[in-house]
Design a protein around this nucleic acid. Structure first.
Lengths: 213, 213
DNA sequence: GGGTGTGAAACCTTTCACAGCT
DNA sequence: AGCTGTGAAAGGTTTCACACCC
């Protein structure tokens, strides 16, 4: 089986979301065409994506919701819960800690760490904010697998290295700086400014600005 | 000149960030190879991307920082400031309102809107939070071009339509729901849960879980 | 010499057509 | 008949090689 491409993984994640909806609605079977309509892609692509994971469908019938849900959950490692530690509990860190999507369906936040003495000891929901010195024991005790960086750009690289040292498997970085991956610990950089600039381009294009036309 | 592909636009935005750094460092000229090293891409791709925008470089010499900076700024419509209105001033909206990248280099937040009566009248920085009924006059008075949705998923589609009705050019959506574009007002959906799931996949792959190997 | 711009080659992704199973 | 899985075609993107200009 060939490796999945990142763009394919992104779509599979979308399918998983749709499957959650279907499950909640009590649907048991569906076709690629039906799913296509729900997530606005075409049926060909969905079949290609799913076929990569093995023969999950039944010809002439379609796909079984539970079976595919189980397959995708296991693909994303979501049947064995991912434990997440957030570094940096400013506005963004707080928003992430409270974001429902970070506390559901195979993901659980198990730690909040911030260097600000004024914040240490306070809590968000049921989770207390801990000092950086507690990071390593916290990571070990909770067997966390994912770190989230919501710290200023200046400290992001150092914090990333701390997370790597704690043995985490992957890091999600919100600091507006490109982190260099080390030791095969993958980083996903989410740069909000990039998203805004992409949009600025679309907005400018709408008006025909800067395109030379 | 053919249209720029989204993936190309994303890279151009990255180049622009690097150019800001180079400008700050007082550099006046650079080569595609030099930029490649700085942003970890290959020089071929950079030249291809930049060549699409016209003959910006000088053979045997390289690119002039100021010239390219001006070209990219105008491409993104950033020389004429983009004015941004944020809908939904919860944790995420507050984080965005305070995010430095949303208040710099051709982007300015000009309005905060929230339906919560307890928030209306309070301020973030110099900006007062206004009720939804103020949205239309606010958008008009400030000639805003970009709307940011940081509202719950349930109200996102309705809020998007409100923004469209106000004549905005593009919308950045953080609600975990896919918005259907209408009236050629482009939407960029930023789903934080997707980012996390992509990462969960990478983390799981590290351990060889769910891949069948 | 040095570094850009560009057409061709290699590579990957998406779309299509249809065989094959129920 | 209906819908999936798959090999082939089409469409894009990235990489390469080299002509061209300073």
């Amino acid at each position: 089986m060939g490796d999945l491409s990142p763009v394919s993984v992104k779509r599979l994640s979308l399918y998983l979301r749709c499957l959650r909806e279907l499950r909640a609605e009590g649907v048991r079977f569906f076709s690629s065409a039906g799913l296509a309509e729900r997530c606005r892609l075409n049926a060909h692509q969905i079949r290609k994506d799913l076929a990569q994971l093995g023969e999950l469908g039944v010809r002439g019938v379609g796909y079984e919701v539970e079976k595919l849900f189980a397959r995708l959950s296991s693909l994303f490692g979501l049947d064995d819960e991912h434990r997440v530690i957030i570094l940096g509990v400013g506005n963004l860190g707080t928003a992430l800690a409270r974001f429902p999507g970070f506390q559901r369906d195979g993901v659980r936040i198990v730690g909040l760490v911030d260097a600000d003495p004024a914040k240490i000891g306070t809590a968000i929901g049921a989770l207390e904010i801990r000092p950086p010195s507690d990071l390593a024991p916290l990571a070990q005790a909770s067997s966390a697998s994912i770190g989230v960086l919501a710290v200023p750009a200046a400290s992001a690289q150092a914090c990333y290295l701390d997370l790597v040292a704690c043995g985490l498997d992957a890091v999600l970085n919100f600091a507006p700086i490109h982190l260099e991956p080390v030791d095969a610990v993958p980083v996903k950089n989410v740069d909000l400014r990039f998203a805004l600039e992409e949009l600025a381009f679309l907005a400018a294009a709408e008006k025909g600005v800067g395109t030379g036309r």
